[in-house]
Design a protein around this nucleic acid. Sequence first.
DNA 1: AGCAAAATTTGAACCGATCCAACGAAAGTG
DNA 2: CACTTTCGTTGGATCGGTTCAAATTTTGCT
Lengths: 359, 359
Amino acid sequence: MAPLNSGKTRPIRLADIAKAAGVSHGTASNVFARPEIVREEVRERVKAAAEAMGYGGPDPKGRLLRAGKVNAIGVATAEPLSYFFNDPFARVMMASISQACDATGAGISLVSAANNEQLAWNIQSALVDGFIVFCIEGGSRLVELARERKLPFVALDLDSDDEEAVAAIGVDNVAGANLAARHLTELGHRRFAVLALPCADAGFGPTTQVQVEKALYSGTRDRLRGYFAELSRFDIDVSKVLIYETVNDEESVWAGLDHIFAGAETPTAILAMSDRIALHALDWLRQHDIAVPGDVSIVGFDGVPEAAASKPPLTTIVQPIAEMGRLAVKAILENDGTFSRQSLPVELVVRASSGPSPA
Amino acid sequence: MAPLNSGKTRPIRLADIAKAAGVSHGTASNVFARPEIVREEVRERVKAAAEAMGYGGPDPKGRLLRAGKVNAIGVATAEPLSYFFNDPFARVMMASISQACDATGAGISLVSAANNEQLAWNIQSALVDGFIVFCIEGGSRLVELARERKLPFVALDLDSDDEEAVAAIGVDNVAGANLAARHLTELGHRRFAVLALPCADAGFGPTTQVQVEKALYSGTRDRLRGYFAELSRFDIDVSKVLIYETVNDEESVWAGLDHIFAGAETPTAILAMSDRIALHALDWLRQHDIAVPGDVSIVGFDGVPEAAASKPPLTTIVQPIAEMGRLAVKAILENDGTFSRQSLPVELVVRASSGPSPA
DNA sequence: AGCAAAATTTGAACCGATCCAACGAAAGTG
DNA sequence: CACTTTCGTTGGATCGGTTCAAATTTTGCT
């Protein structure tokens, strides 16, 4: 047998083996789809012919057209495909999505693309029954494309401004951010810095409240609003709070901390918009011999498993990630047109990365 | 607009809008596929009709049949789907596979199923251009099914006994195991225990060399052969080496160590058949105040990123996981029928989990 | 205007199956 | 033996597009 099986020509269709076996294509089809209704003698003859001709069974491509359902759901993101396997948040979410899919026998198609043109094509040509869209970044474009397919789809992550009634599952980012800020203020902290998620496609660097308000990504905007609303309630002058926009990776977080701790009046509390940011920050702080929570407290956002295992364990706002995944799959599969948007509660989990303000 | 878009009827076909726009379906098709060859006036008319009727663009299900290529590769495993996102080895492999797919614009379909029947159907009906099969467990059945599809496919993981010429990419497990065992013997160790990967579907528990020789999974068998061949060269009585079969999870590894350290003559060196096993073992040893490498040395297998970050960092046999993924994708996409099996080199990376024998 | 070349559009064929109404043959019934 | 069932098989219609040779319309040029 040839390696990787005979490479090129494979024009063996069901019709071919039907002819070879001397039966109609209808019967040949039945041999594979409902073997019990065809007489044994015929069945064996057809199977033998199939075997002899190297027929690999009915081609799903053909079946699909008639069946209508692909029996797979697409998960789309504007990040590269490897995002699904590398990002902690995505991984937890995907694990939960895949469990829900497994339970119903549905498959998963990963859809993504680096550039926009590719993305459009990939979404337009994805063989799926519906989409779950990771809106973490580049949300609007992605949602737009998914919507155009007129297939059931759910956006993961709520956009508080978006009243276009796209189906979505998310958490109340503002409330979560409130919790984080309140926790730190109640511990006596008064000097804050924010390590923000991306606001635009522009890269990383210091930014301002005004800039963030224009952010493309609602999560970033809402979390900042939540932080600031709460800080203001405690009479903290938010205009003095440094905001550094990261791209959720080590390099940009470290650059952010370099920037933040270069100033004269350094913060005692850091609000990180993601656990990933917070964890990178923990590394930086350790390397710079800044004690956590002795000198600086830090609160993350997301509640990924790594946050519980860090040194020190991270205080964070935990999202019900698994629940979100489950609901998203349910929404796609049981799409009865009634589903719209659902906001899940977040929770403050206090661990060892936050403590009383040193002063 | 209805939530989740109008739920049920969607009988709008390209032909419908062609009729509505008063053009032939050939032209209508061109409007979407090659807009530049149709006159602007007509193009706009058709687009307008499509918009008005809520047409979501040409259905890929239809296109697929004619195009022949799905432009996606399937990754199959006998584990649940969540394996792809939870297992460290799988994650690194998948990250590399997805990078290779991204580069060529191919999508990824995750194929799996808990039970065998489901699995067969899922593989038979997967819409993919080829399969990459994770043979970690249940290999033969999976390979069989994939082969039956007569699509290009590559098995990840070499089976040294398997002469059926299935295309495969793997590492020399025997050589890797040799390296691990030699490293420890050269450090003076003489009392060994082996924490094995699964041999059968039977669960976990103590086992014997004879049992492992019959193992369903070639990796397990080959690694044990490698360990024992090398230990024998150093005149170590392998019949005294305890072998405990795990299922690669915390529970079974801990049970294994309970068992191993319950005996009178405890080992000074542990050969773990995977990093995952080794990492769980590290946890157990720490909890039992057994110093690594002071009291016991341990060597893993795989070379996952977590192994470099553990406490202490793990000495292990690193596989070129990323390279394997890249090659697998290449083999599927550029399937010219020439590819067969490829064995990649492994490497011993010495970190802090192995040291001189205490005695 | 007259005619060839270029640009568009058409419609039939095809991709690979499944489904189903109709039909023929074998079995059961009075 | 005529007549109804039951069982298995047949072949045409269909799923939703793409493709391409041929037909038709436009354009270019004298």
